[in-house]
Nucleic acid binder design. Sequence first.
DNA 1: GATGAATGAGAATTCATTCAT
DNA 2: GATGAATGAATTCTCATTCAT
Lengths: 214, 214, 214, 214
Amino acid sequence: MGPGQGRELRARGRRTLARLLDAGAAVFAERGFHAARVDDIVKAAQTSHGTFYLYFSSKEDLFRTLAEDLAASMVDLARELPPLTPDRDGYEALADWLRRFTDLYEHHGALLCTWTEAEIVDSELGQVGVDLVGQFALELATRLRAAAPDLDARVGALALVAMIERANYYLQSRQIRAGREEMVVTLAAVTHAGLFGAAAREVTAPPAAPVLRS
Amino acid sequence: MGPGQGRELRARGRRTLARLLDAGAAVFAERGFHAARVDDIVKAAQTSHGTFYLYFSSKEDLFRTLAEDLAASMVDLARELPPLTPDRDGYEALADWLRRFTDLYEHHGALLCTWTEAEIVDSELGQVGVDLVGQFALELATRLRAAAPDLDARVGALALVAMIERANYYLQSRQIRAGREEMVVTLAAVTHAGLFGAAAREVTAPPAAPVLRS
Amino acid sequence: MGPGQGRELRARGRRTLARLLDAGAAVFAERGFHAARVDDIVKAAQTSHGTFYLYFSSKEDLFRTLAEDLAASMVDLARELPPLTPDRDGYEALADWLRRFTDLYEHHGALLCTWTEAEIVDSELGQVGVDLVGQFALELATRLRAAAPDLDARVGALALVAMIERANYYLQSRQIRAGREEMVVTLAAVTHAGLFGAAAREVTAPPAAPVLRS
Amino acid sequence: MGPGQGRELRARGRRTLARLLDAGAAVFAERGFHAARVDDIVKAAQTSHGTFYLYFSSKEDLFRTLAEDLAASMVDLARELPPLTPDRDGYEALADWLRRFTDLYEHHGALLCTWTEAEIVDSELGQVGVDLVGQFALELATRLRAAAPDLDARVGALALVAMIERANYYLQSRQIRAGREEMVVTLAAVTHAGLFGAAAREVTAPPAAPVLRS
DNA sequence: GATGAATGAGAATTCATTCAT
DNA sequence: GATGAATGAATTCTCATTCAT
């Protein structure tokens, strides 16, 4: 563990720590775990190698810290998944929630991409990843079970989570050439359709006309 | 390029090349691009460093070769996406195709996970990845457009591709605790529902009873 | 030199200095000069890096201070080597002196082991080590010369000093599995025999019965 | 373990290995374990850092290898300790053996001084050191027991070993200002006297006149 | 008097690639 | 065609020492 995190820090120390965390997030996001150099990070944080190791015991330690922060945010978000109903309110709530997911992914998602790469998988962190996906899926599964009783709710929920996560990745990595809102609406529609059938939304949702583009 | 690929190898040379490709696939899959050591690869191939550079000009060169092979297989598979119809035949055809996708992913998918990591993204290879996703999405989009005219077909198709790809990844990395067939059926159902509405499948598809488990 | 030793410390300063000296002795003894970290020392002394350099100008400065203290004690002890006589009183006096040597070695000897390691040998301190051995040897040599005139008294004395020093080291480092008193008596006997012949002690010394063990 | 030692080496590899071993011995002897830089060693061996790690897995690995070689030589020598008899032949045999010990110490002894410093003590190597001293002491103890039955033979033997070892160290580190032969004769005399009484040697040994110097 | 924070010159080690046989 | 050996730039991490409060 980073020695600098065990003790409580003075104002200056807190600022340095924050700079390192920011720099780490940026560099890991841009280069991935292995290609990220401690040198890049300290340069970005405008500090020295020595200082880095004052706060973190290793490059991996910093990564783990960032990942745990992100994981916590994700878990929080998963808990806030609104009750999903077939009506228009349910659809809107889902779309709103997806907007917030996309926000989070936009700011920290690059880190998710390196999650696998850092082979810290065996340790707790790997489990965190699994739990994370599971947490999301759990929430969805509860609704799926009611809406589509003949589907395997657990697997179906995972499939929807997969879609949401990966679509955000495509968006971020520019493999998808689409706007944020476009994607959010589409994901909401597909998910809603998956849960309650396409008909439900068609009736209640407003014509998503502006979305049509291709 | 590795001189060893610049034409006409004797039997012995072909065997060495094959061993290197196999070893490379295995090691990249297990460790990722950066963590994979040339040393690991030559040991697995039971040959020497010198020989490696007889066939490939660099570690990246080997990766690129493997990735291009995989990409070609994927593109081939995408072309074989069957016509999707709302009836039961359409559903079955989709499920069959998903089975083949899962086969491919099972054998070579680990390489896909490292695709991003190797920063060969700027080069053609990155584009290959984009094209690949695009190719799949294109096929789906055509059907989507007919089935759900108020959805952004392109984005919707990408969302479904995202789901299919990522769900396979979850399966492979054991983040999903489900059987192959279970997942294939679920993906088929969700995709089919996304395309034609849940009602379509419910009427035409057989009760997916054994899938129910959670 | 550390400013903190340049005279007149208040009570608080004296306590801090004492803590640092104690901590230094402990850490140098346990880890050796190179492996001892200033950080270990200040932690053991419950103070900070900044404070350390208030009292000592460097790690070496602290070591030197400790070593000089020890050297002074050793020189004092050497001066107190009693007159050695072939009779029983001489033997007992020698044994008593050896007991005190062993006491000193027990408390500070670990530092002696690192003496060589710290390459402060070129400086005065190295000379102190040489002088120290020499001082001991000188005292012994005077007696040896009388008792065994055909031996090289100087070298003989050094050999005895070597034995006494090294045997204490074996004892301390548990390379010898023997009790303190056992060792003291044995060293006294061997030294006495070396000086005056085995016969002398045999006649005059009491049967060292309890020593017999092996 | 050094990868280069598992496989059998070609002529060139054997030469490089030998150069590294020689260089390591020299550098460790001169600077001690901690102060010795891998850089010094590879420079002395006229090779590169990379090559070093081809043969040894770490600086410690090289040290251990050298130490084990030395330990083996020492154990061999201990086994060759001649039968010790009170007559002149016994004395001469002892002196001869001491000459060989001094030879060994002269060539490799510097390494012994760093033995303690490298904290490899916990592992087998530390035990080797203990065993080594024990081996020597065992041989001596057998004779002591016969010659001086009222002494603790085991402790007495250790004391003599201590003397022999440490005196050689003094000689090597120039803390003793004496010639080799001078020291050998003196050690033989003191040891012989310790075993059989001063009288025995006086009668049988030649007058050691030339040794007298101080 | 005391201390938390910062520093940066080294140190060990790794590994893709080249070379001589 | 094959390979054992060599290379050295790049990288992570350490730690004695200094500084600002």
